[in-house]
Design a protein around this nucleic acid. Structure first.
Lengths: 222, 222
DNA sequence: CGCAAGATTGATTTTGATCAACGGCAGTGG
DNA sequence: CCACTGCCGTTGATCAAAATCAATCTTGCG
């Protein structure tokens, strides 16, 4: 739980304030478990993740933890969405990302029609994912949650349906994201294997071996 | 559960495609329980709600229902965020809203700096609310969920802290939103009253009578 | 090796879902 | 007017699922 101001990695922010519109964003790398605190930013940044996974981690008063949102490679995280949140952005894996200055990002977005439409599409996609996640959390059983999570990973990582899905997250992070305890999650894994819907190799890469059944389960067709 | 194409209410869509930039958006009113299906739209609209409450309703395979997101007056609902979702937008109360054509909205947003910054702020706010909702769903007990919901309503309806909060939603809709059954929700209400944290009048308007305690509870300080 | 962190398994408890019944109330129709 | 109906919310009793508590196993690492 190392606390790091992103400014340490975002050298020479002045370089990004000028008028040039093709200035490349700054690249940065963060180790696993580094926490990026939104309040420690002077210039609110937008992160475009190139590898690894970020999550917004929240802590309840008595220590219960949750991860409300995940960010996979190719997805955008706008730090301004959590200004008044208690949540902190946490690197669930080693992460590399390119950083935009918030104002710079907005300007690009206004001035470049292509960039603008990509931005809108990205926003809508993230919101759609959030809505789906709420559905998963609200009413599904532990096994249904895990089935949904596996599909979510496959989609967001753009894994070919024939390929194995590397869930490189720790069990505890998956559990925090899906609103389960690790023990319950572990039992859900056992259940899916026992039902012959998935298999997993020694690297915890999941292969879906009965996709229709797993899909039904994820959709709550009880 | 009346199914209505928004086109019935959005007369003369051609009028909105021209170049005039100050074209006022179209106003519409919908009755309670009207369902707006995203797939029935030809021109994807953006709704700015002026009164009432909208929700995105989802149905699992075996009939379990969820409401993943709510939209209160002053908030924007971009129908493009649920293009490939099974969810439908449902009027949880009688609703009035102004409708923008999606492309028109995007153009306004690109061309008008003020509109643009309002749009970004709105997006971030909605995303923040979604993240908080995930936290509420993932780990909180039924009573904590209700406490959180009361604060969420107060914030999103901009109710003065000294005033009563009108939760005009049906119990079943609140329950679907918070991932509870109506019976459990009802017991949570009883519990909060018994703990002398809230009172409610005959119109189901809630008054917070011990805000610090209710806040602690909502934050999970167990 | 010894240790720590992560993952799994088992036994027990707690919470919320489920099932069932009831009361209030608005709308309907004789 | 009053029975009848359907919807909504509440309450009570029981059940099932997940949390909790505890122990064990696995793996990587100084």
């Amino acid at each position: 739980m190392t606390q790091v101001s992103y400014l340490q990695d975002y050298q020479n922010p002045e370089r990004h304030i000028g008028k040039a519109r093709s200035r490349p964003p700054q690249f940065s790398a963060f180790e696993q478990d580094v926490e990026l605190d939104g309040n420690s930013f002077t210039s609110t940044p937008v992160l475009n993740i190139t590898s690894g996974v970020l999550g917004i981690r929240h802590m309840l008063g008595d220590g219960r933890q949750t991860i409300s949102m995940l960010f996979f490679p190719g997805e955008l995280l706008d730090f301004r969405c959590l200004l008044d949140t208690k949540g902190t952005v946490s690197c669930l894996l080693p992460v590399t990302a390119s950083l935009y200055d918030g104002d710079e990002y907005d300007r690009l977005q206004r001035e470049n029609a292509h960039f603008n439409s990509e931005h809108i599409a990205s926003n809508n996609r993230q919101y759609h994912i959030a809505a789906q996640h709420c559905v998963d959390l609200a009413r599904k059983s532990s096994v249904e949650k895990l089935a949904s999570f596996i599909f979510e990973c496959r989609n967001r990582l753009h894994v070919d349906p024939t390929q194995a899905i590397a869930l490189r997250l720790r069990r505890s992070d998956i559990a925090d994201y899906m609103g389960l305890r690790v023990e319950t999650l572990s039992r859900a894994f056992s259940k899916l294997k026992q039902l012959k819907m998935i298999t997993a190799n020694e690297n915890d890469e999941v292969t879906i071996i009965n996709e229709p059944a797993l899909r039904m389960l994820a959709n709550g067709a009880g």
